[in-house]
């Protein structure tokens, strides 16, 4: 197991007209092994670009990502990924989706089957193995996505707004599931979200990003994931610390949005 070192990442796109877009500007984050880190920011702050670079789908124009001393050059099984939605294989059953990674690695069927059963129970989908994934609700599909990722036993789990498309109630339940999986497996988790509450609840560390150019605005160290391990989630979210931090982060993001609007108006004028 290892953490991730994100070191001086910049991403610059050259536009057809000759202009440049700075999607990311000198972003550095050190994620320790077993940490759960959330990344929050308004749209256009480059958080998805950053996650795609860590996953190895994009190569940055400057800087590098290292895992256990090795430079990330492309996607790999040690960095599991959970997407927002639509990344399950609809032609496979729930169990076959979860078994995808082990099957590709050529592990024995019996071993994979046992693992799949265990993981489906972990995510609360026991008995759903033979169902086609398209018959499941959005929340259940994301449970499958989590189980599929865990079946591969990655060192790091990258989550790209995994709960973004779910309704509010399902979302809260799934947040608890993510926390439980983090605690039970000890995996390093990096989660992108646009929900302030989710970012606070699922981040020992919260990294707030700002747009134009995409950069780290501020970093918080938060006690809430730890608290939620011993306390009901609703109580944690209703606590005075949580509420105060939420307001602080919210107003920060509000100010960014205002600034963007101001810039846009200035650009037009």
């Amino acid at each position: 197991m290892a953490g991730i070192a994100i070191d001086g990442i910049s991403m610059v796109y050259t536009l057809p007209g000759g202009g440049e877009v700075h999607a990311l500007n000198d972003v550095s984050i050190d994620v320790d092994q077993g940490e759960i880190v959330s990344i929050l920011g308004p749209s256009g702050c480059g958080k998805t670009t950053l996650l795609n670079i860590i996953a190895g789908f994009l190569s940055p124009t400057a800087g590098e990502v290292r895992m256990g001393g090795t430079r990330v050059e492309g996607p790999g099984a040690e960095r599991g990924m959970v997407f927002q939605q639509g990344a399950l294989f609809e032609w496979l059953t729930v169990a076959r989706n979860v078994a995808f990674g082990p099957r590709m690695a050529g592990s024995p069927v019996a071993e994979a089957t046992e693992k799949v059963e265990r993981l489906l129970t972990t995510v609360g989908l026991q008995g759903f193995g033979d169902k086609p994934v398209y018959q499941l609700s959005g929340g259940m599909q994301q449970r499958v996505a989590l189980a599929r990722c865990l079946a591969n036993d990655p060192d790091v789990i990258l989550m790209d707004e995994p709960l973004g498309a779910l309704d509010a109630l399902t979302r809260e339940k799934m947040q608890n599931l993510v926390l439980k999986l983090w605690k039970d497996t000890g995996k390093t988790i990096l989660l992108i979200t646009h929900s302030v509450e989710e970012a606070l609840f699922l981040g020992e560390r919260l990294i707030v990003m700002a747009p134009r150019p995409g950069r780290i605005e501020r970093e918080f160290r938060l006690p809430f994931p730890e608290q939620a391990l011993s306390q009901p989630a609703r109580e944690v979210k209703a606590g005075p610390d949580f509420v105060a931090t939420r307001e602080e982060v919210l107003s920060m993001i509000w100010n960014m949005e205002e600034e963007i609007m101001g810039q846009a108006e200035a650009d037009q004028g």
């Binding site: 996953a55 789908f57 990924m81 997407f83 990344a87 590709m104 990722c149 591969n152």
Partner: peptide
Amino acid sequence: RISKVHAAYSLGA
């Protein structure tokens, strides 16, 4: 959908 391809690569395919 590119996310399916990305998911498969991340699963080691």
